[in-house]
Amino acid sequence: MSSAPSTDPAERPAPPRRRTTSGALSAAYVPVVTCVTALMLLMAYTATGAAGEPPARISVSNARIFVSSNSVNTAAFFDITNTGPTGDVLKSVSSAELGSTMLGRRVTEDGAGRMEALPSLTIPARSRVTMSPYGVDVMVLDPPKLKVGDVVRFDLWFLGSGRVSVDAVVVPPQM
């Protein structure tokens, strides 16, 4: 006699059980590693001392540019104020109207003065830096013809504060 397959569910053999622990571990692996990595990065960031520091607050005033006494170069000057608790760095100054500009400073050696390029200018926290013909300025190389009263737009590029735009008035040279 042959036996026919049983249709009664109670008589069917139970399916084999799967091991679910390895599946649960692999499913938890990615979120745990992600959280641990994020925590380590946050700890490293706070260890540098920069976390939570308020930014510098930069403002620029008294923007002026000398009318060129020759066609070779001239200079622009700004008063830069930082009222914030963190210092900032002026990396460069540009003007679409003028072409080539660079930070510079006057150096006097053996009674002779000369201009020297300056890679950047630090603006300390809670301070004011005043540019002048006797210290730091912005050298303008091969300027266009400017006349007293003209207005020239400058962009000052800071490491932390980004771009600060200001209009400078063309004035006669003042020594």
Rank of each mutant, 00 (worst) to 15 (best):
M1R: 09
S3Q: 08
A4M: 12
D8R: 15
P9C: 02
P9L: 09
A10F: 14
A10G: 12
A10D: 13
E11G: 08
R12V: 01
P13L: 10
A14Y: 03
A14N: 04
P15I: 04
P16G: 12
R17G: 10
R18F: 07
R19N: 14
S22Y: 11
S26G: 00
A27I: 00
A28K: 05
P31Q: 07
L39S: 15
M40F: 05
M40K: 01
A44H: 04
T48A: 01
G49H: 10
A50L: 01
A51W: 15
P54I: 00
P55H: 06
R57V: 15
R57A: 13
I58D: 06
V60G: 03
S61W: 04
S61R: 10
A63C: 01
A63P: 00
I65Q: 09
I65T: 08
N70S: 14
N70M: 02
S71Q: 02
N73F: 13
A75N: 10
A76T: 06
F77A: 05
D79L: 05
T81E: 14
T83A: 15
G84N: 11
P85K: 02
P85R: 07
P85F: 03
S92R: 14
S95K: 09
E97W: 00
L98A: 11
L103K: 08
D110T: 04
G111Q: 14
A112K: 15
G113T: 15
L118S: 03
S120K: 10
S120W: 08
L121T: 08
L121I: 12
I123W: 07
P124C: 11
P124D: 11
P124M: 08
R126G: 00
R126H: 04
S127Y: 05
R128P: 03
S132A: 03
P133W: 07
Y134D: 14
M139K: 10
M139S: 11
M139Q: 11
V140S: 12
L141F: 09
L141N: 11
D142V: 08
D142N: 12
K145N: 11
K145D: 06
L146A: 00
L146T: 01
K147E: 01
K147W: 00
G149R: 05
D150Y: 06
V151G: 06
V152G: 06
R153N: 08
R153I: 03
L156A: 07
W157M: 12
S161E: 05
S161L: 01
S161C: 04
G162F: 09
R163F: 03
V164L: 07
V170L: 00
Q174W: 03
